[in-house]
Design a protein around this nucleic acid. Structure first.
Lengths: 130, 130
DNA sequence: GTTTCATATTCGAACTCTCGAATATATTCT
DNA sequence: AGAATATATTCGAGAGTTCGAATATGAAAC
């Protein structure tokens, strides 16, 4: 028996929503952790309003969730397996896995990144030869 | 170092191409085997010209490949892992796995389906209780 | 209270995609 | 050869998406 078109539309909505190049980057940047808007802004080097628009689209499609901490808003993936979809799509499209890895920006000024930057700096200066 | 936007565009192209509800159905119907246009026509109950258009889009994005056998053209996926992406997207979107399974139509008239229909009919009539 | 900083939202132009209609092309049958 | 069948391609109207610009809103600092 033929399935109702809405089944495929649900899948379609998910795939087309994550399938915009800027939203791909945002989702990879959030990854299995979380990211704030200024984090994404400095990482992607795009205007804040535009990033907020993309986040709005992802929120509306129930792909991301947010929590506010003072002035800062942190976003997480409702289902981190979406990163797996993007990575598999990258494999199929011929993109090297390591090139999809999102580096942390060096100038995000939110408290969380400042805290992690301190830890990373300390780890880097403490680290011996590998 | 920031990755060139083309990396994400390649992923984006793949995801948006497969992320149309009709093309989702086509890709699931082809699956790990192959399907002809009249097969897809009777399965999806859509006009042949429209199905051919979708196949053209999939061909242009190098997602499917074709072989001609007389008047009939059979399509296969260049990378069957695309089905895995769609199934995972279905899981995330809350679609039951079994509802994505594509049933074979009962009235495709290509030689390949007629041959398989004979085998299936024979298997069905021979089959005992499960 | 106002100012500053972080983020969200709306509008509109330009562009892309969807899908119907018409028709062209390839192969086989007569 | 023409007719029938299977499939491909092009065009265009309408809908949807992208992205810039402008601005609104929320929280913290002063």
């Amino acid at each position: 028996m033929k399935q109702p078109i809405t089944l495929y539309t649900q899948i379609s909505n998910l795939l087309t929503t994550i399938g915009n190049p800027v939203r791909v980057q945002i989702l990879l940047a959030i990854g299995t952790g979380e990211a704030c808007v200024c984090h994404l802004e400095s990482l992607l080097e795009l205007r804040q309003a535009y990033i907020s628009q993309q986040l709005m689209i992802l929120r509306k499609q129930k792909i991301i969730n947010s929590r506010r901490e003072g002035k800062y808003v942190y976003y997480q993936l409702l289902n981190p397996e979406i990163v797996g979809i993007i990575q598999k799509a990258g494999e199929i499209a011929g993109v090297q896995d390591d090139t999809l890895a999102i580096q942390n920006p060096s100038n995000c000024k939110c408290p969380k990144c400042k805290m992690e930057e301190n830890i990373t700096s300390r780890n880097s200066s403490d680290r011996g030869k590998e």
